[in-house]
Design a binder for these strands. Sequence first.
DNA 1: CGGGATCCCTTAGGATACTG
DNA 2: CAGTATCCTAAGGGATCCCG
Lengths: 205, 205
Amino acid sequence: MAARDYGQYDGVTRALELVGERWGLLIVRDLLVGPRRYGELAAGLPRIPTNILATRLKELQDAGIIRRAPRSRIIVYELTAYGRELEPVVLGLSTWGFKALDEPREEQILTPAGMTIALRTAFRPDAAAALPPTSYAAGFEGAGLTIGVTGADLTVERGGGPADISFSTGPDIRAMLCGDMSGVRVLHGDERLLDRFAQTFRLAA
Amino acid sequence: MAARDYGQYDGVTRALELVGERWGLLIVRDLLVGPRRYGELAAGLPRIPTNILATRLKELQDAGIIRRAPRSRIIVYELTAYGRELEPVVLGLSTWGFKALDEPREEQILTPAGMTIALRTAFRPDAAAALPPTSYAAGFEGAGLTIGVTGADLTVERGGGPADISFSTGPDIRAMLCGDMSGVRVLHGDERLLDRFAQTFRLAA
DNA sequence: CGGGATCCCTTAGGATACTG
DNA sequence: CAGTATCCTAAGGGATCCCG
């Protein structure tokens, strides 16, 4: 038995042995957004030591959760089908964790991957399906995302781009996803689209 | 910032700061089954050092996930409403982790709480609702449980008791929950009730 | 420059003994 | 029974270095 095994035989224990180590699920979270290179992962997890990142990537690979994929001379890490099955767990943690989120502290940063998962967590497909297709360019304190909503489909991409409305927010994303748009500043576009955004993305009370 | 914070501001990160430490979610899993005393928790987590159990209980309490409840001179730990909201996460990990479970190894044990969560994970309310109410007394290698299914309702209690059928299993619970009843031995009752059990509890492929 | 490997130090976690 | 106290190991943190 590996030293850090829990010595029990059941699903929860096995899952925690595979992805329960520190940083493990955050790497999975970032890869749920899309394939990433080593340096991109390191940039999205600013406090992770490089040796830990390397170790976790090997462990996740050995467990069949991620794979290294060569993309024309550069290597990207991507989730396997089995790894993608962690999405409900990650979204569940996101839903649960948001309820315990305080005001953001000075040293806490927003990352593009974290915001992407937050948007997926808050996304209301039913509400979105009843609204016209809309694109939003959102500047989240250093994490610029382009959000596309078409019917019940959601896409989120890094970086800015043309969109129906462009806005920037303060750091308190939780407040915004709970319907408080007071920290939002519209850069261009019809301000009423903010209401549409608030209907489309909303965390449960 | 606490030394072990991740330095990010989002739901997944916050959740992992609260319950992502080693043993944290296993304690939550055991308390999802019901309130437990300190000694019961220690018995259900045989490899946890007692100082770690004490530390985790304090942390979970400070986070508002569990509370100490006096029950006439003895103290039990129980989940708060917020702690119970972790149930989907724990069941999600269970579902996911079962797919990565190998044959049980010699040193791996079954615990009553682990088996209870496994049964909840495998429970098929739709199938159960179409079957008559049934009680099962199952002996899982040292974890005796009494399982009651009434319509789409499931109850699992520790210990044996009168039941429609009584059986004992080998250690490979995963195989059994995947439909392979070859390791099961009926102690008394109508053997055909095993089929009913297999329809009621079944992990997805 | 991307993708790591190495070093040293700190601290969480494991084993065990002990106490109210 | 319900935890503390202690000691020790090994994982994690942080900086730096290496290599194709």
